[in-house]
Simulated assay, not measured.
Amino acid sequence: MLNTYLNNLVKVIDSITEFTGKAIAWLTLLIVITTFAIVLLRYGFSLGWIAMQESVIYAHGAIFMLGAAYTLKHDGHVRVDIFYQKFSAKQKALVNLFGTLFLLMPVCLFIFYVSIDYVLLSWEILEKSKEPGGLPAVYLNKSLILLLVITLILQGVAEIARNILIINTNSQGEG
């Protein structure tokens, strides 16, 4: 019963993370096209717009912030695994479980705690770019910090459930 619930939870969260990661990946194409246009316009026609340049920075921030959970799901974060690579599946699951519980989750909660006022103040004043002709929605960009936390916590819950399933499966197989 618990395993079925955890399995379903992992599937739902993983599908959300997968969709978000694949959707956000398209921003890399937008960055390439926009950067090419910026260079072409500036050096070919002596034209340029601050908003266009800022849009590249915003898109890059969105890729980083919203892609972190996708990277976590695919185990793509940097890891020094001198010992980890030789661990059994159950040992790896235990390391991942404790790492998620005692490192990922507290860091996410800390980031949320220290950034919530920063983001809310930006929304309160509807913060705009300080550059003339810049993008008028800095508050949306700052909101990515909270979305980073939400998506990482959500994927962290999936990782906790996934590792509990691995531990339960291996424990039952050993008994």
Rank of each mutant, 00 (worst) to 15 (best):
L126E: 12
P106T: 11
L148T: 12
P136E: 06
L146R: 01
A89S: 12
N163K: 07
S88K: 02
I125Y: 12
L94V: 15
V32D: 00
F112E: 05
E174G: 01
G21Y: 05
L27T: 06
M52G: 06
S171H: 10
V12P: 03
D14M: 10
V10P: 07
V78T: 09
V12K: 12
I50R: 02
A161N: 06
A59L: 11
L6Y: 10
L165H: 08
V149M: 01
Q155L: 08
A59H: 03
A68L: 14
F102D: 02
G21N: 04
I38K: 02
A51T: 08
T34S: 04
E159Q: 12
D75K: 14
R79H: 06
V119S: 04
I33W: 03
V149E: 04
L146I: 15
L148H: 10
T71V: 13
S88L: 07
F36H: 00
M105Y: 11
L154Q: 03
T35H: 00
Y139P: 06
Q91P: 03
W123F: 15
A137W: 14
V78N: 02
V12D: 03
N7W: 10
A23K: 01
L29V: 15
N170S: 10
L144K: 00
L6S: 07
G76M: 09
A37H: 07
I166P: 02
N96E: 09
S88E: 02
L94K: 13
E174M: 12
Y139Q: 05
T35P: 00
L97W: 07
A37Q: 10
S143L: 04
T20Q: 04
A161F: 08
M65V: 12
V80T: 10
Y70R: 01
K92F: 03
L40K: 09
T100S: 07
S46A: 14
V157C: 08
A93I: 07
V157Q: 02
E54V: 14
I150V: 15
L103C: 13
A69M: 08
V95R: 01
G99Q: 05
A25C: 05
P136M: 05
I82F: 13
S122K: 04
N96R: 04
S15G: 04
G175S: 11
A68D: 03
I166F: 01
L103D: 01
D117N: 15
M105V: 15
F87N: 05
L29K: 00
